[in-house]
Simulated assay, not measured.
Amino acid sequence: MKTGKRNIDIFSLSFLDCICCGFGAIILLFVLSKFAEPVVLGELTEAFSSRIRRMEKELADVRGKARSLDREMTTRVAQLSAEEKRLSRLQGDLSDLQGAFAAARDDARVQNIIQGRLARARQELTDEMRRLLKGAPPPRADSPVGGIPVDSEYIIFIIDTSGSMQANAWGLVQQKMRETLQVYPRVRGIQVMNDMGRYLFPQYRGRWIPDSPARRRAIVSGLGTWRAFSNSSPVEGITAAINTFYAADKKISLYVFGDEFSGSRVQPIVDAIDRINGADSHGGRRVRIHAVGFPVVMEKTSQPGNTGQRFATLMRILCRRNGGTFVGLNGTRP
């Protein structure tokens, strides 16, 4: 038996087959990966493009909302600035009013004391005065001043605030207001309304304005800027004044300042006032009605039956029937 070592050839056919198979597998994997890569890249590209488009649209929406919010913020900032200026102005006005109110209150307190002393002094007759007045008829409480009875303790002004009055006679209106108040040195209450029943001082709606020199000045001053709507007819104001302020224990006088009556008929108005301002058992009315006629319309036209003449006719009748006096002025200048 012959023995010996067998030579092994590493580069045999089997080895080469294995090597070729391995390289073939690698090449196949490489080919397969390169074939699928464009498909994957296309899908990824489409997905990213779609996402980019969606984000661009969202960005455009966000930018639009941001511009809208910027505009709104600019508007709000402007409004805030305006409100701050208005608040500052109102705070200044409040300070002025508080100061004026404090001064007026002190002034009113002093004036009340002085007027109270004067009233007591007038009422206390000396022996000499009694001797001189002995046998003379006692003065009447309702003695007229310039033809106007001044026995009332409460007075209401009803003023035509129409454009014709404002433009042509407003300075004279303020003057006649001052003169009328001077006729009443002291009353218990005052009120000022326009011919539509609107108040000069809305805070005193339905209430009497307490009388004092400071408040009288405020009334005359307030007329300067009063621009209430008017239909140039005193009927509504007279009706509102009687219905609101009449009281059996109060003596009240109405003063109607006007230049025209826009209604067409006088008698229905007279009848309506008679119903709400009825007479008592002695013939006295609930309130007196006085009137001052400003010839604004009459100065512009002399045609018979115009609104100025109708006002004079109406108020003469109302004043005569309601215990008052009608005064017709001959000019519109103070």
Rank of each mutant, 00 (worst) to 15 (best):
L97D: 10
S81V: 06
K134L: 08
L133D: 11
A241M: 06
C319K: 05
R216C: 01
P38S: 03
L28P: 01
F257N: 05
Y204F: 15
S81G: 13
L118M: 10
Q191P: 06
G331E: 14
S12Y: 02
Q303S: 12
V150T: 15
I219T: 04
S49Y: 04
E124T: 13
A279D: 09
G222V: 02
F311H: 10
N168K: 11
E83D: 12
L125Q: 12
R140F: 03
T332H: 03
Q267V: 07
D271E: 14
I252G: 04
G42V: 03
R117A: 13
Y255F: 15
M165H: 00
Q98R: 13
A214Q: 11
G206T: 06
I242L: 01
V145T: 13
F23T: 15
H282W: 03
E46Q: 14
T3K: 10
A47K: 14
E299L: 13
V183N: 13
V270M: 04
A240V: 09
Y204G: 01
L125R: 14
S302K: 13
R188E: 15
R286F: 02
P185L: 03
L181W: 02
Q267L: 07
V183F: 02
G328V: 00
V297E: 15
R217W: 00
D61A: 11
P210D: 10
P137G: 07
R321I: 00
Q98N: 12
M1C: 05
I289E: 01
L318R: 05
A248P: 02
L87A: 12
K57L: 09
L16E: 12
K2F: 06
L97P: 00
G189T: 09
V39N: 07
R188M: 10
L41Y: 04
Y199I: 01
S33K: 07
R71V: 05
P149C: 03
T307F: 05
L87S: 13
A103W: 01
G308F: 04
P185V: 00
I8Q: 08
